[in-house]
Design a protein around this nucleic acid. Structure first.
Lengths: 351, 351
DNA sequence: AGGTACCGTGGGAGCGCTCCCACAAGTGAT
DNA sequence: ATCACTTGTGGGAGCGCTCCCACGGTACCT
């Protein structure tokens, strides 16, 4: 516990100036110590640190932000309604990774939801006011105007999951294509012949890549690709139920399902159960995310693990780098960074 | 879309001064318009607003914070690990209410987790730096030092669920005592004789009040209160399972269970199932919170509804009031506000 | 000895606002 | 006509920091 010296008249917080006076040095020197500049002698540094401790000095963030033109805060923007955020483990895992990566830092994380139009408007104001140094954007749809707005405002940004193959923002993603291939190859290896796919939201690039992986894996194994076996979902449980019902109707002979998320698989499982299909005896099921849901499902769900926490960390690293060299996040020339992390199939009883 | 005039040399954002020049008025006047002061003539106001629109002016928050000594931000502090936050609907409901109440405001909401020691330390720094105007504290345990720290820093704060009957901070809570009574009276009314109670965390005041309500309801109905029928839980699902197992062992003759949360009830249900007890035939089950879980359980769970979203709103209202009159949140004399909202029993098939 | 190079340091200027005092102009009572 | 007040406005001072230039001191070269 630092003792809190009651410097200054009004009992207010001590300022740099007061610390300087106490330590018998100038303002600039204290600033240098606070900010870890190497151009300070050891003796002076010690004296300043002592004064800081005695006075219980804490820098005034507003003053610093004004003078240095930075906020030491970044925002995690979730362009989804809050309910989605809470119901899909993807987000909480991501948040955990981000939080962990940030805990070694002075940076503060803000969580901002922008699901409704109203919220989006507030967000626009917020960004225009430059209240954060950078932005992490998760779950962005193809036509979202947010990324372009960020470029225009010259706010560093990192996106989780590029919007397209030609994404201009720095992005971090898992290997959706490869992950889907792993899933399908696994099912083929288990002797399944008629493998259906419940997709994610089609306006999410990653969902498209999973479809590509699904198709290519089948094709290369010499299977025919039947579009009747592909049914769009939306990453939600309800979507999984609906899609599964549609698939069962169209192709009652299917013997395997690859779902674009664990939550989707959970929905599919329900419908399969109600239709009297046993898992994995009649129908093998594979999900995506390897979230807590997969482990707790009955039977436990085979799933493609994305290193979501790692992705969160990677996003922070990239973002902080961009913030550090105050460079707008629009990639220039070779600078553009599209990080892709490997996935891993976790086999369980459902397949 | 406002056109963004490229004022100033470096293409930077326009300042108050530039807006003033453009509108042909003084800095002070623009400030008055921006802040909605009534002491501005209509003509001047219109001119300033036009200039603001033309230039795409957005106030610099850091400068404002420095000059006015406020941040226009409040923090929602969750002194729990993130997992808890995501797994218990209580928090997301609360967040929704808070968010809704705040959306009419200029205030920004920050979500801060302080589950680990490390996070708590960061939080302390954060608060000491006065980076927020006020704090909303949810789920506080009896021995938590946070509230006192806030008082000492003179940061307005509102707590959800007082720490004790003598809480000094402004608080908002639901009627835990009354809610528990409703639950137990309901079970008695249904003819149940041996009613067990799985409590919440005992260091949470609200959990104690529910125990009081449970006891008093039984007593007044002429039932004997048997402490063997009370088993401590911790609001979690695992806690519910464990507690239920303990109760079944001690009092296999029980015919009803009142759980301190829906999540707890879900855990209890599992254990009951595994023990071959039917719900509600053999054992009636009542939860607390009336969260989504209650509606989706099988059978649907009777539960005590707390108006959590309303509580969030109320907390914001009280907090903003305290912030507005820059008064430390330590209640003085009659000023102290302890708001209690009524609960409501929602009867479903589980009882 | 003088010159050049750095190092550590002090402090002025300025970031973009809000606050408040001063002042001009208008209003109405005396 | 004078005074007293009100209303709207301009602009100085200052919030607490960072940035950067200038300066004295020491070290090493010629």
């Amino acid at each position: 516990m630092a003792s809190h010296g009651a410097r200054g008249r009004s009992g207010g917080r001590p300022t740099l100036e007061e610390v300087a006076a106490r330590a018998g040095v100038g303002r600039g020197t204290v600033s240098r110590v606070i900010n870890g500049s190497p151009r300070v002698s050891d003796a002076t540094r010690a004296a300043v640190e002592a004064a800081v401790a005695e006075l219980g000095y804490v820098p005034n963030t507003a003053a610093r932000a004004l003078a240095a033109n930075r906020t030491d805060a970044i925002a995690l923007v979730v362009p989804e309604p809050e309910t989605r955020f809470f119901s899909e483990p993807y987000f909480s895992d991501m948040l955990r990774g981000v939080g962990a990566a940030l805990s070694d830092t002075e940076m503060q994380l803000l969580l901002i939801f922008a699901g409704s139009d109203r919220e989006r408007q507030r967000l626009a104001q917020y960004l225009a006011a430059h209240r954060v140094d950078g932005v992490l954007l998760v779950s962005v749809h193809a036509d979202d105007p947010l990324p372009d707005m960020l470029s225009q405002l010259e706010i560093p940004a990192v996106i989780s999951g590029p919007r397209s193959a030609g994404e201009t923002l720095t992005s971090v993603d898992s290997d959706n294509y490869g992950g889907a291939r792993q899933a399908v190859e696994h099912l083929i290896g288990r002797g399944r012949r008629t493998i259906a796919h419940i997709t994610g939201r089609l306006d999410v690039y990653g969902a498209q890549r999973r479809i590509d992986g699904y198709r290519d894996a089948l094709r290369e194994a010499g299977h025919e690709v039947d579009d009747l076996l592909i049914e769009p979902g939306d990453f939600s449980e309800g979507g999984g139920r609906r899609a599964m019902a549609a698939l069962l109707e169209r192709r009652p002979d299917l013997d395997a399902v690859f779902a674009a998320s664990d939550v989707t698989a959970a929905g599919a499982r329900q419908t399969l159960r109600e239709a009297g299909r046993r898992i994995p005896d009649d129908v093998a099921l594979v999900g995506y995310d390897d979230s807590a849901i997969a482990r707790h499902m009955e039977p436990p769900l085979t799933s493609v693990r994305q290193p979501i926490e790692e992705m969160g960390r990677a996003m922070i690293d990239l973002l902080l780098a961009e913030v550090a060299d105050r460079r707008p996040s629009v990639s220039r020339g070779l600078d553009r960074r599209q990080m892709v992390l490997a996935t891993e199939l976790v086999a369980r009883a459902s397949s």
